[in-house]
Design a binder for these strands. Structure first.
Ligand SMILES: [Mn+2]
Ligand SMILES: [Mn+2]
Ligand SMILES: [Zn+2]
Ligand SMILES: [Zn+2]
Lengths: 126, 126
DNA sequence: TTACTTTTGCAACTTAGTTGCGTTAACAAA
DNA sequence: TTTGTTAACGCAACTAAGTTGCAAAAGTAA
C-alpha cells in the first residue's frame, strides 16, 4: 500500500528528490534529514514512494541502497529498467537514459536485469 | 596478499567450488562448512582466493555476496566481467559466458560494469 | 471537535560481514 | 625429527544497513 496522507516527512523526502538530479542513497537521506525525520520513517517513506512509482531503487557495488526519481512510473508499473552509473572518483550516482540490448540467453527466460556501470563521471574525467 | 600455505580450510573451500558448476553464496559456504571451518575463516579464505584470481565475487539483488570459479584469472588480472544469472524460482546463480556490448556513454569513462539478470533458469522455465 | 486510522519515533532486533587478539598449525631450516 | 618462524585460525565482540513491534502523534473526513 502506497502513500495515503501528505505528511511532513513525505514532503521533506520529496523535496530532497526535486532538488537533485542524480540518485541519493538511503544513508545520505537519513543523514540529511536526521534532525527532522527518524531513520525508520525515512526507510518506510521510501518504500511507499517506490510502491507508488515516484522513485525507484537499486543497490550499488557495496550493496547499499540508492533511490532516484521515476519518470513515468505508477503504482501499477515501473518502467525504470535503465543502467546506473557510479563515479569511482566523486561517488555520484545517476540514471543512464539508455537502452542496453541483452543478447538472447539460451534456455533462460529473462525477467529483470540490473546494470551498474562504474567509472569516471563528466566532471571527474578531465 | 594471497594464499601462501595450503591449509585444510583452503582445501575444503576449493573442493566446494570444484564440485559445483554455478556460483555459491558466502552464506551457503559458511553453512556447508560450519562443522569444520569458522565463518571468519571462510570470509578470509574467499578474500584470498579472489585476490589470487581463483574465484571472483559479485552481489545479488538482495546485496549478498556470491563467489564463482574463475577461468583464466591471476593475481595480476581478473578477466571475469561477464553477467550473472539468478533464477527467481530455484535461486540458482551462475555465470553467463556471453559478452554484453554497452553503448558509448557520453562524457563518461567506463571502468567496470556489473550485470545481474534475473528470470527462470533452464530447469525452471518448462 | 471528534473519531478513526495512518504515520511516526524509539528502542530493540536482525543479519552479513569485519576486527582484534591469543592460539594453532604450515613449513622450511637445522 | 625437532625447532623456530609466522601465516592462518577460532572465538568473541563489534559494525552498519536495514527491519520490527508498539505506544504516541498527526492527518483527514465527518
Ligand atoms: Mn534510475
Ligand atoms: Mn561469474
Ligand atoms: Zn565524479
Ligand atoms: Zn531455477
Amino acid at each position: 500500500m502506497g502513500i495515503i496522507r501528505k505528511t511532513q516527512s513525505i514532503e521533506l523526502l520529496l523535496s530532497e528528490f526535486s532538488n537533485s538530479t542524480g540518485a541519493i542513497s538511503a544513508i545520505e537521506l537519513i543523514k540529511r534529514l536526521s534532525a527532522k525525520v527518524n531513520k525508520t520513517t525515512v526507510y518506510r517513506v521510501l518504500d511507499k514512494l517506490e510502491d507508488d512509482g515516484v522513485v525507484h531503487s537499486f543497490l550499488d557495488k557495496s550493496g547499499i541502497k540508492w533511490y532516484a526519481k521515476c519518470n513515468s512510473c505508477t503504482h501499477a508499473q515501473h518502467f525504470d529498467s535503465h543502467p546506473h552509473f557510479q563515479c569511482l572518483n566523486c561517488g555520484k550516482v545517476d540514471c543512464l537514459e539508455i537502452e542496453v540490448a541483452l543478447p538472447n540467453i539460451p534456455n533462460r527466460q529473462v525477467e529483470v536485469s540490473q546494470i551498474l556501470i562504474q567509472g569516471n563521471c563528466e566532471s571527474c574525467s578531465k
